[in-house]
């Protein structure tokens, strides 16, 4: 009987595999061609995803002149560290400001600034909408959630003109704040606050907690997981911005890595030997931080993504 219930609790594939095996040979699993096929498909998929990045790494280890002749191969050379040093410290332009390190710093400012700003502003707004009796609540709600409908790209030119009018070109404010003007995170936090039990607020009120104390001491700690999930999504989104930085930050000292890709590809043209080694390392630098964040905080990331996009 115990055997039977055990079989039912197993996932279907495993249950099917477990059934015909005689007790004496239980430990030797028969080779199932179905499973082999599944793994083959998944390995092919994983390679499809991984191969381009491995190619970038391989190309950064061999001399540029050799790449110009033969392209990527399976050979691993010794140019990685010299190329890395060059990418980090040497500037791509005459101004001396587009070094890998400088662009890395700018990308960090954009990614972190965007994520933090967005989370703080949307938590405040969501708190006001959910926890207060407000006369204009419905109006505020619609004003805020209409922004979910239109992405920045469709109003890009007028947004640029307004940022220019306000004198915010080439400033961190002009780069980050217009990107925050959408309510994705506010919507997410509103959903979450709505699911927090009503009794919590009643209990806090009986204990004499005011709105500020309730927010800081109860609601924020309660939302920790949600904040982490949002932070990961928003950091990746901010770090990967391209069109807006290209338009707003024209001073080389403000270039981000993702924006620098444009300069990098232009460096591959022209008569001299294209600098594949350095370019590829800069491209790897541009993807590494968001990829590491997504891989290491996978559980929160998936939670944030699948719950916020709906």
């Amino acid at each position: 009987m115990a055997e039977l219930s055990h079989t039912i609790l197993l996932p279907p594939e495993q249950a099917r595999a477990a059934r015909p095996v005689a007790p004496a040979r239980r430990h030797r699993r028969p080779l199932r061609w179905g499973a082999v096929g599944n793994h083959a498909v998944l390995i092919a998929g994983a390679l499809f995803m991984l191969a381009p990045l491995l190619m970038l790494v391989q190309m950064s280890t061999i001399p540029d002149a050799q790449i110009m002749r033969t392209g990527p191969s399976f050979e691993i050379g010794d140019r990685f560290w010299p190329n890395l040093e060059k990418a980090l410290t040497e500037s791509m332009s005459f101004s001396g400001e587009t070094t890998g390190l400088n662009m890395f710093r700018n990308s960090m400012i954009l990614g972190l600034g965007f994520a933090l700003g967005k989370i703080v502003i949307s938590m405040m707004a969501a708190y006001a909408i959910v926890y207060f009796r407000l006369r204009f609540a419905t109006l505020a709600f619609w004003l805020i959630f209409t922004t979910l409908l239109l992405p920045l790209e469709v109003r890009i030119v007028p947004s640029y003109e307004i940022t220019q009018k306000l004198g915010l070109l080439n400033s961190w404010t002009g780069l980050i704040v217009p990107l925050i003007a959408s309510a994705t995170a506010t919507f997410f936090f509103r959903q979450f606050f709505m699911s927090v039990p009503e009794e919590l607020l009643e209990a806090a009120k009986i204990d004499g907690a005011g709105p500020v104390k309730f927010f800081i001491d109860i609601l924020v700690p309660l939302s920790r997981t949600m904040i982490a999930a949002m932070f990961i999504i928003m950091f990746v989104f901010g770090w990967n911005q391209y069109l807006w930085p290209v338009m707003v930050s024209t001073e080389e000292g403000k270039f981000t890595l993702v924006q620098g890709i444009k300069q990098i590809t232009q460096g591959l043209e022209g008569g001299h030997i294209p600098e594949y080694g350095r370019s590829n390392i800069l491209a790897i630098l541009a993807v590494l931080p968001p990829v590491l964040v997504v891989v290491f905080f996978q559980r929160w990331f998936v939670k944030g993504l699948t719950e916020s996009d709906k």
């Binding site: 998929g45 990829v291 997504v294």
Partner: peptide, 13 residues
């Protein structure tokens, strides 16, 4: 993990 990390790659890359 191997199938989801490309999510974080920026479109220009």
């Amino acid at each position: 993990t191997l199938l989801m990390w490309v999510y974080a790659v920026a479109p220009p890359v």
